[in-house]
């Protein structure tokens, strides 16, 4: 008995020894900074209190959650709208395109599919910068030039909130659709063809078939990928930051997601304490979402 528990302890020790380089690295770069951020969130650290900051308790959290003009709540609302709009558009468009890709007589299917993967293959920040400069720039952006030709007006796409939001949505769709199309295309391929054949015999039209066969069969297959995409959309930083908020190149729009808001408070306005409080709040939100989505998934698989 004693020998057994001894070997158990030894096994545990060896396991941690083998895993320790990786765990130490994670501890240093991921865990410690999160704990440190939590600590800073309780202080008034900012440009004026860089060394002589003091602990002010939960004031930063109160400011973020209960002062409506602090900007956090409106950024949160923005992020929710952004996530919903993007996910709905993405799912509808990807569903349409992947279904059309699976129409029987389409000899060029694989060619189209490869081309459609390009936005996914490109490095994300390069694409965003190309969209910003090549499409939306007020001098040489392609869309600006086309608009000028058509209407004679110079549109500053990224200058006001609504149009900047729409432009960012367009870029996000462009970047994210390939992945969704690929996932849905894979899902469609796994649906048994015989369902459709018997539905056709029963006289069901293509729309009826899409609603009654394709959607319910697709749902469990694409579920996990959709959850991942909801998270990445909710956590989106690059598009909004690069398009509208780069230092020295702000375009005039003030759309914030919670992450760009946290970034701005840390690195632009230097409210480190407040920014850290927001970071911790976001982390808490993400943990709650992750738990909910895990639980739902478990319920569905049981």
């Amino acid at each position: 008995m004693k020998a057994k528990s001894n070997t158990g302890a030894r096994k545990t020790l060896i396991a941690y020894l083998v895993a320790s380089p990786s765990l130490l690295l994670i501890g240093l770069i991921v865990v410690f900074p999160i704990l440190y951020t939590a600590y800073i969130s309780l202080t008034n650290m900012n440009t004026y209190h860089w060394f002589n900051y003091s602990i002010i308790g939960l004031d930063n959290y109160k400011r973020a959650l209960f002062m409506f003009d602090s900007g956090f709540l409106s950024a949160l609302l923005n992020t929710v709208v952004w996530t919903v709009v993007n996910m709905v558009l993405q799912l509808v468009i990807a569903f349409l395109i992947s279904n059309l890709l699976n129409v029987k007589r389409l000899p060029l299917r694989n060619f189209y599919k490869t081309i459609l993967m390009f936005p996914w293959a490109m490095p994300g920040y390069v694409s965003i910068l190309l969209w910003k400069t090549g499409m939306f720039n007020s001098q040489f952006g392609l869309l600006t030039q086309w608009m000028e030709k058509l209407s004679g007006l110079t549109v500053r796409w990224l200058q006001n909130d609504v149009s900047a939001f729409l432009c960012c949505t367009a870029v996000n769709l462009w970047l994210a659709l390939p992945f969704m199309i690929m996932i849905m295309d894979g899902g469609l391929k796994s649906i048994d063809r015989s369902y459709y054949e018997s539905a056709t015999l029963d006289g069901a039209g293509p729309i009826r078939q899409a609603v009654s066969i394709t959607l319910p069969c697709l749902r469990p297959i694409i579920g996990p990928s959709v959850v991942i995409t909801v998270f990445t959309t909710f956590k989106q930083f690059d598009i909004i930051y690069l398009m509208t908020q780069q230092v020295g190149a702000q375009t005039g729009a003030h759309i914030h997601t919670i992450i760009t808001y946290a970034y701005e408070n840390a690195f632009i306005t230097n409210n480190y304490g407040f920014s850290s409080a927001i970071s911790i709040l976001i982390f808490a939100l993400l943990i709650v979402f992750a738990q909910i989505s895990n639980r739902r998934e478990k319920e569905e698989t049981v």
Binding site: K11, A15, V30, Y36, F267, S279, I282, I287
Partner: peptide
């Protein structure tokens, strides 16, 4: 391997995975 604390560490890692590193950039 099965060892003490394995499940806890894995669960913590899953939580950490959802944390965007930009948020702790200042601490880093």
């Amino acid at each position: 391997r099965k060892f003490a604390g394995r499940k806890v560490v894995l669960r913590v890692l899953l939580l950490l995975y959802s944390f965007p590193s930009v948020l702790s950039m200042f601490a880093i």
